[in-house]
Simulated assay, not measured.
Amino acid sequence: MTVPTIALNNGVQIPQLGFGVFQIKPQDTVQAVTAALDAGYRHIDTAEMYGNEQQVGDAIKAYDIDPAEVFVTTKLNNGFHAYDDALRAIDASLADLQREQIDLFLIHWPLPAIGFDDAWRALEKGYADGKLRAIGVSNFQPHHLRRLHEEFTVRPAVNQIEVHPYLTQTDLLAFDAEHEIATEAWSPIAQGLVLDDPVIVEIAGRIGRTPAQVVLRWHIQLGSIVFPKSLQPARMAENFDIFGFELADDDMALISALNRDERTGPNPDEFNWIPGTPR
């Protein structure tokens, strides 16, 4: 099965479905990524903050595949927003992932108490130097994105945000699309909260799919990039099998109408946590 790709605003092609390693322990990461590659995934999403970049690199290196065929995304740790720190963090990620170039590198959080100007300048430098194929952001709101457009040279290629049927973020998805920023959806099934929703269960039963497949397919048809996480190979395969069916417009609307503006993660306008400090 071939996963469709989306052209980012600099022409780089990104697979629309990937495998996320958030909350996967380092000791479990090699096995999980190997199983994901076995299932057909060719896009892995990690982050410095997850503590498993090296294991992602180990798994890809050991797999019988050209590493260039695997699209890798990682993100800047919150403690490295100073310019020189961010440059060093880029080099550290390159070393840990065992790559000469990272496909997509994101600022993980905007950190309102600290700011992201110097961090973005460092990402622009990494992009100009050819260390990063594309650069973007995560958890940015429209006011953050407007500043990037108005004050900096390189437009973000991606905005990775929390999106699921209980937090549809319709306005932010529309803002991203208007400004040629691809949206990536993290927590795509709201950490499982939406899988028991009667609307989703009914749609799944009616079309002969699982609730997770229905929700992931909803993301795909919205045009978002999605990367579910699992440690179970059978669930990885189930999550990958979402391209042999389509949701009807009415079902898409029913799922979108479930919005509660309910987050499973922090509010980006309030979140300033740096690893190693108290929350």
Score class of each variant (00 low, 15 high):
12 V>P: 05
7 A>V: 13
5 T>C: 09
42 R>H: 11
155 R>G: 00
148 L>G: 03
173 L>A: 11
210 T>C: 10
270 E>T: 13
5 T>P: 01
33 V>L: 04
80 F>Q: 13
135 I>E: 06
133 R>M: 11
3 V>N: 13
19 F>G: 05
238 E>L: 10
41 Y>Q: 05
181 I>L: 11
230 S>F: 04
99 R>W: 03
182 A>P: 03
70 V>H: 11
47 A>W: 05
260 R>Y: 01
278 P>E: 07
168 T>C: 09
120 W>N: 01
65 I>H: 00
212 A>N: 08
261 D>A: 14
216 L>M: 08
76 L>V: 14
118 D>F: 07
176 D>A: 13
22 F>P: 00
146 R>T: 14
174 A>L: 10
17 L>V: 06
29 T>N: 08
89 A>F: 06
139 N>C: 07
212 A>H: 05
74 T>I: 03
96 D>A: 15
133 R>D: 05
33 V>P: 02
4 P>T: 01
114 I>H: 14
81 H>D: 07
127 Y>K: 09
79 G>D: 12
36 A>G: 06
80 F>T: 12
188 P>T: 04
62 A>C: 07
51 G>H: 10
241 D>R: 11
129 D>A: 13
204 A>F: 06
262 E>D: 15
96 D>E: 15
278 P>A: 12
56 V>D: 08
250 D>S: 13
116 F>K: 00
127 Y>N: 03
245 F>P: 11
270 E>D: 13
36 A>R: 01
227 F>K: 00
1 M>F: 06
142 P>M: 08
226 V>K: 01
78 N>K: 04
96 D>F: 06
100 E>I: 08
9 N>C: 12
253 A>L: 04
14 I>N: 00
108 H>Y: 09
262 E>G: 02
39 A>P: 04
107 I>S: 04
45 D>A: 02
84 D>V: 09
99 R>F: 09
54 Q>K: 15
117 D>N: 12
242 I>M: 08
73 T>K: 05
31 Q>K: 15
118 D>H: 08
266 P>C: 05
219 H>F: 11
193 L>I: 00
234 A>Y: 00
134 A>Q: 03
28 D>C: 04
10 N>A: 05
270 E>L: 14
27 Q>S: 13
249 D>N: 10
125 K>N: 10
7 A>Q: 15
75 K>V: 07
240 F>E: 02
129 D>M: 11
